[in-house]
């Protein structure tokens, strides 16, 4: 489905602030799989997601969805294939516009925008029906500006919008991180339900180990712009939060030494 081949990205090259955000990252995602990307701050997990979404063009490497090379496509063109939920609950919807108007825009993601009235009665009924599944009572407030809702409600709606037209790939960028614990749990639950029901292919960046263990069927761990661990199938089934923390510890200890020393120690002791 998604094939990432050796992509690299350096921000601010040639300056003091030079950051090698991605270093030769390769990753294959199977159709219908749900993968979590975890890692420390600055490990490149969000950068990887942004490279797929098209926020920037990678320096090298290729990104293919179903065999189509998309790594040079602008962000808006990739939206045909990709649905996104952002970390910032306010980033995924237009605050001054109503719930119905926001959803109606998502109903034509990546399609033409004809000169026909967008929000009318029958569309509103269809929207209300689907919004009901969120169980937030929003179906009665379709004409309210979406900016009047809470972060959790907006994030739930953004999730619904991103998946309204089945995307080839769903990108979730720490989408519960900015929410209070109760809303975060609710949105996480909705994420699981929607992904399972629609049989979506999803990639989720998360800072929560528990979420990485509970929701997806594969965990990819990143560190310093590289993929350092890839847990799937049986290994993923067995892994628990303490195991992940332990892996982080080992990686960070390795950091304390020079890379060559680390390799030496790994060969002798591991």
């Amino acid at each position: 489905m998604l094939t990432i081949n050796n992509i690299s990205k350096t921000f601010f090259p040639g300056t003091i602030n030079e950051v090698q955000a991605l270093r030769n990252v390769s990753l294959q995602i199977k159709e219908g799989s749900f993968t979590a990307i975890i890692g420390t701050n600055g490990s490149g997990k969000s950068t990887l997601l942004n490279a797929i979404a098209g926020t920037f063009i990678p320096d090298e490497g290729s990104i293919k969805i179903d065999g189509t090379e998309i790594s040079r496509w602008p962000e808006f063109k990739r939206a045909r294939m990709i649905g996104r939920v952002f970390q910032n609950p306010f980033a995924g919807s237009a605050a001054d516009m109503t719930i119905a108007e926001n959803i109606v825009m998502a109903m034509r993601r990546g399609q033409s925008r004809p000169l026909k009235i967008a929000v009318h009665k029958s569309i509103k009924e269809a929207i209300a029906e689907k919004v009901q599944m969120l169980k937030m009572g929003l179906e009665d407030r379709l004409d309210n500006p979406i900016g009047t809702l809470s972060g959790g409600q907006r994030q739930a709606l953004t999730l619904l919008m991103a998946t309204w037209l089945k995307p080839k790939l769903l990108l979730l960028d720490e989408h519960t991180a900015a929410l209070d614990p109760k809303s975060a749990a609710k949105v996480a639950e909705l994420t699981k339900i929607i992904i399972e029901r629609e049989n979506l292919t999803a990639l989720m960046v998360t800072h929560s180990m528990q979420q990485a263990v509970d929701l997806p069927d594969r965990i990819v761990m990143m560190h310093r712009g590289q993929i350092v661990e890839d847990l799937h199938d049986e290994m993923k089934q067995r892994v628990r939060v303490p195991d992940l923390l332990e892996t982080f510890n080992i990686i960070q200890k390795r950091e304390l030494f020079d890379e060559s020393v680390a390799r030496l120690m790994k060969e002798q002791y591991v």
């Binding site: 808006f76 063109k77 995924g92 925008r113």
Partner: peptide, 8 residues
């Protein structure tokens, strides 16, 4: 940002 994410 949202408009771009909707493919426009």
């Amino acid at each position: 940002q949202m408009v771009r994410a909707q493919g426009v």
